[in-house]
């Protein structure tokens, strides 16, 4: 039998399969080289990049919770210049699509990032983080207000020649409204969800377990919420939706595709099973073959609501 057709298209860019890795959970790709054949993946989304390097939050930065984890990394990253000089040469050679996740605390910062990254060879798209709950400045404001979300999307789109994926925050009342605003701003796709704001307390010391007090919840625990949001957004917008949130197995990935996601990103699962992303690529191919489906497009949006 022929190999099933796994390719998908987002913003005019063809990905060999719908499995990407989520920003902040896959380093800059190289960290997973011992465990994954990177060229088997649909794409790699790198750790969020800001214009200047960021130090991030003080420790403790992570804590495990039931079926998940809280993180308050605080967007630590090497900054744009070092990213381009130190990380891009490697990423250019890995044989898969590279999406650069960007963040800023002003419209100007997003614009500059978009402009400068558009001039760099080896990048297939931008994912705009308007949602990270960890940093006191910026982040939250852009992602939780429809007008601001539209403005930042427009700022990036008008300054970039790359496809723009806007990554949505789940910490809002109506995520579909934000998704529509971002679509109106010119985004070629949306990805969701970023982490859910949470908290944990050490009852012995009566102190918060994270130095930042609050942090973002990720992992299997958030999957049902993420799936519901992806399903809602897929109905609210015409642009492709990339599903993120607790995806750990092939079956999880299939759920998101059925709910209307064109692609998915694997996050926290990379820590639990460093091979998770590749396992899911192989699992999806097997699912298509076993069910005699010719391609992944026969799965996407295939939810049956009786």
């Amino acid at each position: 039998m022929n190999q099933p057709d796994m390719h998908i298209t987002v913003g005019g860019v063809v990905f060999k399969n719908p499995v990407l890795t989520a920003s902040g959970t896959f380093g800059y790709g190289k960290e997973f080289e011992p465990y994954v054949n990177l060229h088997h993946l649909g794409g790699v989304v790198v750790k969020g990049i800001s214009l200047a390097p960021r130090r991030g939050n003080p420790p403790p930065r992570i804590v495990e919770t039931a079926g998940g984890m809280l993180n308050a990394i605080g967007l630590e990253n090497v900054g744009l210049d070092r990213f381009i000089s130190e990380k891009i040469p490697y990423l250019k050679e890995i044989g898969t699509r590279v999406i650069v996740n960007i963040l800023g605390d002003s419209l100007e910062e997003y614009q500059t990032l978009a402009q400068r990254l558009s001039e760099v060879e080896g990048i297939s798209g931008l994912e705009v983080n308007i949602s990270c709950p960890n940093v006191k400045k910026g982040g939250v404001a852009f992602g939780t207000d429809p007008a601001m979300a539209e403005a930042v999307t427009r700022a990036v789109c008008t300054h970039s020649t790359l496809p723009v994926i806007v990554k949505l925050s789940p910490n809002v009342t109506d995520i579909s409204q934000i998704a529509r605003a971002v679509e109106a701003g010119g985004a070629q796709a949306v990805s969701l969800i970023n982490t859910l704001l949470g908290m944990a307390i050490d009852v012995k010391t009566r102190r918060p377990r994270l130095a930042n007090v609050v942090g973002g919840l990720s992992g299997p625990a958030i999957k049902p919420i993420a799936l519901r949001m992806v399903w809602q957004v897929a109905q609210a917008v015409k642009i492709p939706v990339i599903g993120i949130g607790g995806i750990t197995t092939t079956e999880d990935a299939l759920e998101f595709l059925l709910a209307g996601a064109t692609a998915i990103e694997v996050g926290t699962a990379n820590f639990v099973n460093p091979r998770a992303s590749q396992d899911i690529v192989e699992g999806l191919a097997r699912y298509l073959t076993d069910n005699k489906l010719s391609g992944i497009s026969e799965v996407i949006g295939g939810l049956v609501v009786p």
Binding site: G24, T25, F26, G27, E31, F32, K47, G56, P58, P59, P60, R61, I62, V63, E64, M69, N71, I73, E76, T268, N270, F271, P274
Partner: peptide, 17 residues
């Protein structure tokens, strides 16, 4: 020793000053 999520330099959770 610190808390660790990944152990392979991907999560940046194990920071010390």
């Amino acid at each position: 020793e610190t808390m660790m999520a990944c152990g392979i330099s991907a999560c940046l959770g194990c920071a010390v000053p």
